[in-house]
Write a protein that binds this DNA or RNA. Sequence first.
DNA 1: CCATTAACGCTAAAGATTTGCGTTTAGGTG
DNA 2: CACCTAAACGCAAATCTTTAGCGTTAATGG
Lengths: 183, 183
Amino acid sequence: MAREMLRQGGRSARIQEAVHRTVQELLKNMDRGEITVPMIADKAGVTPSTIYRRWGDLSELLADVAVDRMRPIADPEDTGAMTSDFEAFILQYAEEMSSRVGRALLADVLGSLEGNAPVKCCQYTYHHLETLRKRASARGETPFDLGEAVDFVVAPIVYHILFGDREPTPDYCRALVARFFKQ
Amino acid sequence: MAREMLRQGGRSARIQEAVHRTVQELLKNMDRGEITVPMIADKAGVTPSTIYRRWGDLSELLADVAVDRMRPIADPEDTGAMTSDFEAFILQYAEEMSSRVGRALLADVLGSLEGNAPVKCCQYTYHHLETLRKRASARGETPFDLGEAVDFVVAPIVYHILFGDREPTPDYCRALVARFFKQ
DNA sequence: CCATTAACGCTAAAGATTTGCGTTTAGGTG
DNA sequence: CACCTAAACGCAAATCTTTAGCGTTAATGG
């Protein structure tokens, strides 16, 4: 997001909502390279200057929307055991992030020079991992370390998606997970 | 780079050279957010349309320049043993990539939607690691696996730089390296 | 040395971004 | 609850960026 809103209610919120929704719809139907601020403004029923003043430029707006779309809606599935919980979460994470949409979200999040979209995005991941960790603790399993989970499993997956040097296939992801718990 | 040049000599090469040099100078003195194509064209003594036709847009040009700047100029230092070679290389890699300039290069490389800047950039890393691996083999040491080196060490460093969730300090990097060789 | 055509320069048109100014309205205050 | 203040907006002019047409230059191959 650009700056945090000083005014949260009414018109301001309605416009944010309309703009976000418009961006998401446009992203479904066209390449991000073809999307422009005036185009978004028109479809959202707002003037371009409103968008420029509020978000700065297109990449900040896209990053804002991307972070919003990445926000967790549900906790990771509970499969009954830590390792299977973890593996299930990672497989879904890799699939989502390596999809066309996921790659676009990552690009948008990392493309914002201002703001702190990257940190927010990565906090969502930590949050999910933390949920799994607590769940494991509650079961009496010896929990894993958050930082190590990111280093061993999440980081490699994201690296390969970003640099395109290999595909994060389910087999590859399972191997990462296995290596992590066997360390 | 946009497409590969069909004509490599004379004027075409001079212009590429001038534009690249101009971009690098501008990057030293100002934020990338303030740099524009007409500004580059002016300082390089070219018309803007030439840049647009050849590179497409600013982010492609920046990616092209960034890849160029990342191209290895020298092999990693030879310290006499594989583990110290590897650690020395990683420490330098982390320092370069986490610097102001390095973060900008990474952002530019990953910011190009077209082209294959990310793959090229990452191939440079593989090339360096391969050099270290061969050198170890020649010494009679049992060499490490390239893919695992990226997964265990390079990927976490890059992840933390990109998402800003922690600093890749020398201590942290050394711990990654130690974990890799102890695995 | 000549022919071919990729790549360039110039310029006008189209489009995106910024800016000034008046208006609306959210959030606070008496 | 009516009022005040300033944030956020709409509108429109000015500025800047990007695209496209067309003639010119010069790299490459014969």
